[in-house]
Amino acid sequence: MTTKTPTPSSVDNPAKPYFGIDVPFMDHIGLQPVSLDESSCHTHLAIDTSLTNSRGDLHGGVLMSAFDFTLSAAARAHDPLQFGAVTIEMSTHFYESARTSVHVMARCPRRGKSIAFCEGEIRDETGKLVAVARATFKLIALNK
Rank of each mutant, 00 (worst) to 15 (best):
N53F: 04
S65W: 03
P109Q: 15
T87P: 07
M26N: 12
R76W: 00
E89C: 03
D48M: 02
V34T: 10
R99L: 00
P109V: 02
I122F: 09
D79S: 13
M26C: 07
C41T: 08
S54N: 12
L81E: 15
D57F: 07
V34S: 08
L58D: 10
V11P: 01
Q32E: 14
F67D: 02
F117L: 14
F69N: 13
S40F: 00
I88Y: 00
H103F: 03
P24K: 13
G84V: 00
L81P: 01
M64C: 14
V104A: 06
T100I: 02
S40R: 15
F19N: 06
V86K: 15
S40Q: 14
K16L: 00
D27N: 15
V86F: 06
Q82T: 02
I21F: 00
Y18T: 13
D37N: 13
L31A: 09
F25W: 11
H44N: 08
S54T: 13
S114W: 05
H42E: 11
F83D: 09
I21W: 03
G56Y: 06
L51E: 05
I88A: 12
L51F: 08
H44M: 03
F67Y: 08
S39M: 02
S39I: 01
G112V: 00
V23M: 09
P17T: 12
G112S: 11
P14Q: 13
T43Q: 03
T70F: 03
R99I: 04
L58F: 02
L45V: 05
H59S: 04
I115H: 12
L63Q: 14
R107M: 01
H103L: 00
S39F: 00
Q82E: 15
I122K: 08
E121V: 09
K113D: 12
S101Q: 11
Y18G: 08
H59K: 07
S114V: 08
I47E: 04
T100D: 15
